[in-house]
Design a protein around this nucleic acid. Sequence first.
DNA 1: CTGAAAGCGCTTACAG
DNA 2: CTGAAAGCGCTTACAG
Lengths: 337, 337
Amino acid sequence: MQRVRIKDVAREAGVALSTAALALRNDNQLREETRRAVRDAAARLGYVYDRSAAMMRSGRSHTVGLLVCEITNPFYAELTAGVEAALEEAGFATMLANTGESVTRQRRMLERFREQPVDGVLMMPASGTPPTLLDDLERWGLPHATVVRGFRRGAHTGPDNRGGTRLATEHLLGLGHRRIAFLGGAAKNSVTAGRWEGYARSMARAGLEPVQLACRTDIGEAAALAQDLPHDGPTALVCFNDSVAFGAMLGLSRAGRVPGRDIAVTGFDDIREAALWHPRLTTISTSPRQMGQAAARVLLARIADPDAPPPRETIRAQLVVRESCGAKLNGGGCSSG
Amino acid sequence: MQRVRIKDVAREAGVALSTAALALRNDNQLREETRRAVRDAAARLGYVYDRSAAMMRSGRSHTVGLLVCEITNPFYAELTAGVEAALEEAGFATMLANTGESVTRQRRMLERFREQPVDGVLMMPASGTPPTLLDDLERWGLPHATVVRGFRRGAHTGPDNRGGTRLATEHLLGLGHRRIAFLGGAAKNSVTAGRWEGYARSMARAGLEPVQLACRTDIGEAAALAQDLPHDGPTALVCFNDSVAFGAMLGLSRAGRVPGRDIAVTGFDDIREAALWHPRLTTISTSPRQMGQAAARVLLARIADPDAPPPRETIRAQLVVRESCGAKLNGGGCSSG
DNA sequence: CTGAAAGCGCTTACAG
DNA sequence: CTGAAAGCGCTTACAG
């Protein structure tokens, strides 16, 4: 069985090849009647559109490269789901690459995307990515956007990191805490910087000394740190994200301390497990799925109009008060969420 | 700046176009010296290989479509990471599609993959996918393989579901439990069937009545079910997977019962959180990342040799004894892991 | 709408 | 290794 081409569809429908091509792309300079006749003919013959040929001729692949720093992190998985859904809806396919936080792998994958070729790249840069990467992308003429993690320039969509930890810290201050430590954020990137700043500035405004208990985003590492916390140490922990907060709560439990009663804990991200953990986690919601969708739309806008100024979007952070901060257990000084 | 093509590289290197083309693909019928000269010329000119053109001419895209049932499920995220890594290593790119358990979306995405075109499809079929889908894929001439969830035929890589729940059930029987219930598995698919069978047969062999507490794979739903469990109900729960087990433990805690002491709980999958939960979860390990890698290799073999009989691989299940089964707390009848 | 044609950048087969 | 050439299946511009 020969492969069916547009030429065959045109013959079957009794129209010219160029007419069939236009009809198959649903071009509206054709009469509805003609378009339907062509589509019917295509269906009868079992025609399958060949995007690789279209790509080659038109130079547009309707494919986007998605560079994920770590897909097994639930937050990034949710974000990826949002990106994929928004791209799919816009008729774009998603080429996935998981860098696993390796700058080397990331580089190789970008070069692969360039060869592919993709119409644009959406990335969550691996920790330690030099900002000059943007220069390369620009030199290559590859439209790009960052999400969550970004640089000082370039199209970007990210959470309000500073505002988020500010909300968390002020909430804990309002509950009467004074010895509040920041747990996590050992990696050097824009997210870490923003979350630390939001915390540290709030502490400074309250005349208190900010303290960082640095660890990587790893439940086990956070647990180990929290387990060894002295009893005259912090009474509250502003955690870098929910995974760190879960680790902290596990470590505290192992040390015989009850999170939310003996010590307050807040997270960041509001991943699904946050509402289900025991105690339920007080955290900062940043809606990763919606952020992914927003980032996809930003990139598509870049692709459609590369000369427009690159948009920078901030997703609002919201405090979600549950149990781990102790507000609902102690009836502390906090009036509401 | 004009785009650099193979023709330009050939001129720069002082060889024929066909020689340059062969050299760039590192064909070993050429002398090493010639290959290097061509690669150097390509580097000097900033040549970028255009896969879309190669794809069109050769009919091979070196791209695989990956259909994930739910990427936000940590188990499938880990699996996806394994698939992507193995494909990348083999020089294949991954087109990602997240069906979110929708058979309709799945269908649309497969048709998209067909147009793309991809060299093959690796899928975790959405719940409720009719086995006739395989007929369509074969009619389309699209090499395919399933992973985790599959059908009675076709290339497949999956965990030993039956063996896994058998291990868990026999472990609990060995600890002296008699009222053991199976929690979860409301969805109809091959995984559910296998896990239920492993449990039910072990119960039957022990002369006991199998009982299913059906719920979807959802922490909240499992928690609700476990919270309402009567005190004269089951003393042990064989859970469909780790997420269900986490839900069960949360529900039990809310009802004031201590998992691992008042009631035994086992999971399935051994996702990362399993070792870190409180209590640590006794579960069945199936190494999702390795399973993903194995599945990718199976598909690549199908693509390379479509006429060979489709391989079916089973990944061995292993019991990982931790705390939630009570074995290590009670010093029960279990001798080891 | 038609019809003939060029061209995207490769791969591939072939005679030398 | 060379060199000339065909062809993958589209898109696109154009004269009618």
